[in-house]
Nucleic acid binder design. Structure first.
Lengths: 266, 266
DNA sequence: GATGCGCGGATCGGATCCAATTCATGCATG
DNA sequence: CATGCATGAATTGGATCCGATCCGCGCATC
């Protein structure tokens, strides 16, 4: 191993930090600080930031820097609906091919989820869902779905923490699994759809509440200078302001969405 | 303007060249040649390649370089089905909100498509479809769909050229538009679904035929060696082969799919 | 006292230079 | 004659240096 380039390592590290929420929305990612922390030059850091920019995880602005791209409320809702559409489709396609082994594996995952940390829960949640869809034979779509899951995950985490929604989710999972065992495509997809959309409503509500409670993002000032104590999550500097709250419906957290993908077609 | 970095310019240029098919699947993108041709150093080229790698357009391999990522037959089929699912969903959501102005605009686009080049046709085709979905109020999904369109486009182009499928497509479009005018959600989505999947079958078949006809990919490499005359699409030279044809069903053109997005989760 | 301007630190983007890796060719050897 | 290994060119990846841009601060001016 260790065959991969430094850019890839940096990109993976930053990706994890963003997806786990260690780097909150809107946080500025300074090249210098990161390169210093990770012991590499700024070049691989820059490449990593560009990569993450293409993935939509950060917003790059020329000569200003990169900030962790947040997801607006409307977009969050949209993503959850998107998730519901994809998952019901995949489940519908997969059920006929589901074998006992697959279902048993899924059940094992459910049992694991009974007692685990919140971080583990997220990963297991994805594994459970993916286990049900793998037989659909659509790896490309499955990968797109995985990415979608990842992007929603961090918001879902805070939501679960607040609402203690895990028991409900577990019950849903068991029900869905049972309907899959019964090969009841109609009811299974309906239950799945309800499961996802149900989360959606409460999720959007709790995220909204959280943002209302602290409308001014707690941008932290950097200070990579402070060397006291072991800095676990080091380089992170708040960034120059930017509350260009584009009025209108739904409040977006960060201006940048996916910018690099935006191109004008003649 | 001109406020964007050189990396962004290079990325956009390469993107267009790949999506239009100027750079065929499997072509090696050499940093040195590109930087020389575009008059920049290798650094912004590298960043652009990494960006495109994150988008899945090229496959980056450490210390080996980047090649234009092809789409395997199975994956192509999958993408078209994916497209059908997204488009029917969006149309379904949009129809209630479609106003006469939207429908008239769509009809104008159809008329434009009657007589235009193949390049223009692709762009107009997207604009027509997008016009029908915009009212769904799902910009994020619409953007994802646009990307999906772009990736299929180049294969569709050759397909249309071979099969002369444009008249059929036009008829489909007119029918779909009429059903939208009638607010007949059921029939409209059904017609749309058939329209897309119908293309799918013949598309996959023709791509397969094309690949069977020339199984050994004419790998070319980019580069601007020939200085005579205005070289619009830089010269092309063969490249190290690599036909690690993983047996199994469906032949993949290029090993790399979207690699940078692949990460092992503990 | 408010406003416009210029300067300087901080940060980013790009170019050049150097190290690391891969592949191919050719030679030695069994 | 086939096979394994060394050596070299070609190419990529990373580090350092330099110019460009942005932002905040202070000062002059009205």
């Amino acid at each position: 191993m260790a065959r991969q380039s430094a850019s890839a390592v940096v990109a993976q590290l930053l990706r994890e930090r963003i997806l786990t929420g260690a780097y909150p929305d809107g946080m500025a990612l300074r090249q210098e600080a990161l390169s210093q922390e990770l012991g590499v030059s700024r070049v691989p850091v820059r490449e990593a930031l560009r990569e993450l920019g293409a993935e939509g995880l950060v917003a790059n602005v020329a000569y200003k820097g990169a900030v962790v791209a947040g997801v607006g409320l409307g977009e969050l809702r949209e993503r959850v609906e998107y998730r519901a559409v994809l998952e019901t489709w995949l489940l519908n396609a997969a059920i006929p091919f589901l074998e006992d082994a697959d279902l048993d594996a899924a059940e094992a995952i459910i049992r694991e989820m009974e007692s685990c940390t919140l971080e583990e829960w997220s990963a297991l949640n994805w594994r459970f869902h993916a286990a049900l869809y793998r037989r659909a034979g659509k790896p490309f779509v499955l990968d797109a779905l995985r990415q979608l899951h990842e992007r929603i995950e961090r918001y879902l985490r805070v939501h679960l923490q607040i609402t203690h929604g895990r028991p409900k989710a577990h019950a849903d999972h068991r029900q869905i699994l049972a309907l899959c065992r019964a090969k009841d495509v109609q009811r299974a997809t309906a239950a799945l759809n309800a499961h996802i959309l149900n989360v959606s409503d409460t999720l959007v509500a709790s995220v909204q509440a959280a943002r209302d409670h602290a409308p001014s993002l707690p941008r932290r000032r950097c200070g990579a200078s402070a060397r006291s104590g072991g800095a676990d999550v080091p380089s992170a500097v708040p960034l120059p302001e930017n509350h260009a709250e584009g009025g209108g419906a739904g409040q977006d957290s960060v201006p940048g969405g996916l910018d690099s993908a935006k191109q004008a077609r003649s």
